[in-house]
Amino acid sequence: MTDIDSETRTKLEAAAFRRLLEHLRERSDVQNIDLMNLAGFCRNCLSNWLKEAADASGVPLSKEESRTYVYGMPYEEWKEQHQNEATDAQRRAFEESKPNH
C-alpha cells in the first residue's frame, strides 16, 4: 500500500475495522477467551484500543461507549446474551498463552 495516499489508506483501514467489528458481532458464538487464546486480542482489546486512540486525539469517549461501539450493544447486555462460563481447558490455554498477549 505504499502508492496509496494517507487519506485513502485511512479510509481503507477504517472500512476494514468496521468490517471486523461487523464480523465479530455476527460471530457472537466466538468467545473472547477463544480470541485471546488464538489471536492474543479480543473485543475488549479492540474497545480499549479505540478508547486509547480517542484519548490521544482529544476525543471524549468513555470506556462504556467504546465497548458499546465494538459490541454493537452495551457490554453487560452482550455478556448476558452471549458470554459463556470459560471451561477449564479455555482457562488453561489462556494461562499458557498469556506471555503472547
Rank of each mutant, 00 (worst) to 15 (best):
E22S: 03
E13C: 07
V30E: 10
V30Y: 06
S62Q: 10
E80Q: 00
F41M: 11
E13H: 07
R91H: 13
A93S: 15
S62P: 06
K11V: 14
M73D: 07
D5T: 12
Y75K: 01
S28D: 13
E7P: 06
N32K: 06
Y69L: 04
T2E: 05
D5I: 07
A14S: 14
E22Y: 01
G72Y: 08
Q83Y: 13
A89F: 11
P60N: 01
R19V: 01
A89T: 15
L61Y: 00
F17L: 12
N44W: 03
H101E: 13
N84Y: 01
A39G: 05
A54M: 02
R27Y: 04
E77P: 11
E65C: 09
N100V: 09
D5N: 11
R18K: 14
D88H: 10
S57C: 11
A14Q: 09
E80S: 05
H23F: 06
V59S: 07
S62Y: 09
A54T: 07
A89Q: 14
Q90R: 14
D3T: 15
S57W: 13
C45R: 15
Y75F: 13
S97T: 15
E26W: 02
L50D: 05
D29N: 12
C45N: 12
A53I: 12
K98H: 04
D3R: 01
F94M: 09
G58R: 00
E26V: 13
N44P: 01
Q83V: 06
T10K: 14
K79A: 04
I4T: 15
S66P: 09
